[in-house]
Computed example of a mutant assay.
Amino acid sequence: MSGTLELDGLRKRFGEVTALDGVGFAVAPGEIFGFVGSNGAGKTTTMRIVLGVLAADAGSVRLGGRPVDAALRRTIGYMPEERGLYPKMKVGEQLEYLAELHGSSRAEARKAVRRWTERLGVADRSGDTVDSLSLGNQQRVQLAAALVHDPALLVLDEPFSGLDPVAVDVMSAVLREKADAGVPVVFSSHQLELVQRLCDRVGIIAAGRMRVTGSVAELRAGGQPRLLVRAPDAAPDWAAALPGVLGWARDGDRTVLTLAADADEQALLAAALRTGPVREFAPQQPTLTELYREVVAG
């Protein structure tokens, strides 16, 4: 039975470097949580602490209200960023072996391997060694390894790295399927458009600290206010010096203005009208990519 994953006050230092500084968040059953941040921000360190590969200097990890011990870790499906498979071992034999390590019987393991290799499109490679596969197929096998024991929690580090669009769609569907079955899913990714589309909630980490956590809609609504203005006759920099405008970006006849909280939108509309006709004038929420830039820069 899956339960909520809870991370509370995780701290970790490597010598003089503080990798994690009070990291905490929760992922409920049935929820896909996108864990994003730049390289070195602390994502992989956090995931390795959840898995028990690293020990935290302080803080706790709980699953279903219980501290995560060796027994609970056997119920977790983990996909590392660096592929953790044996390169010279055959795909099918390796997946069966890994399922049995997590407590599956031989019959259960074989059934699960057939199911997931077929689901992920690598059933015809079961007799091949891992190192003979393309990088994309190795990634599919790595995901199968995280799934063959019917995990109560999925923790995936850059699962979409190196995948073609078809494989991304397959993996996205699998993650949603597991979440819909009540499994908490945590994954990190630099592909923020994919995170925005797939995740129920997102956490942004920078320099070892959680900067923001919330649903995609909440985070986008909480970003700096933006205004989309379509003024075909306006000069490219028509808004650059206007009061309350912190930044602007031009795309064809559209200008997206980043505004101060006290910006006077009616004054901005009047300024736009002085350039000629205004075809569109509307608030615009930032994308997750734009929000990420704001958070990390801040």
Rank of each mutant, 00 (worst) to 15 (best):
V122L: 00
R226Q: 10
V195K: 15
V148K: 13
S161V: 01
S161W: 02
V216P: 06
V174N: 05
D237I: 08
G182N: 01
P225W: 13
K178V: 02
V148W: 02
S126G: 06
W116Y: 15
P159D: 10
S134W: 00
A206N: 11
F160N: 02
H149Q: 00
D180P: 11
D169W: 00
S161H: 08
P225H: 11
E177K: 14
L219P: 06
V170N: 02
V212Y: 06
A217D: 09
V195R: 15
V141W: 04
A235W: 05
T117H: 13
A181E: 14
E218N: 04
V174Q: 10
H149F: 06
V170S: 02
R115M: 04
G222K: 14
D157M: 13
L143C: 04
I204V: 13
R197E: 06
L163N: 02
F160R: 03
G136P: 06
E177H: 15
K111W: 09
V168S: 01
D150A: 12
L198N: 12
A221Q: 10
A217H: 12
E158Q: 12
H149L: 05
V185M: 06
A241T: 05
V195N: 12
D200Q: 11
V195E: 08
P225L: 02
Q142D: 03
K178C: 13
R197Y: 03
S132C: 06
A112Y: 10
G127I: 05
Q142R: 08
D233I: 13
I205Y: 03
W238N: 08
P184L: 01
I205T: 03
A235C: 04
F160A: 10
M210L: 15
R140D: 00
V155L: 02
L227W: 06
P184F: 00
A112M: 09
E177C: 14
P232H: 12
A234I: 14
A167C: 09
L228I: 15
I205N: 07
D169S: 13
D164E: 02
L227K: 13
R115K: 14
L219Y: 12
S132D: 07
S215T: 15
L194P: 05
P184M: 01
N137K: 02
R197G: 01
P232A: 08
A221M: 10
L153V: 12
A179W: 15
V202A: 06
D150T: 13
R209N: 09
V148M: 04
W116G: 12
G121Q: 00
C199S: 09
V216R: 11
S172D: 02
I205A: 02
D200A: 10
R119W: 00
L192D: 09
G121M: 01
D237Y: 08
V148F: 09
K111F: 12
R209C: 05
E158V: 07
D128K: 14
R226D: 03
G203K: 10
R119L: 03
K111P: 03
A145H: 09
A179M: 04
A239P: 09
A240H: 15
F187G: 05
P232W: 07
L143F: 07
G203C: 12
V216A: 07
L120W: 07
T117F: 01
Q191K: 10
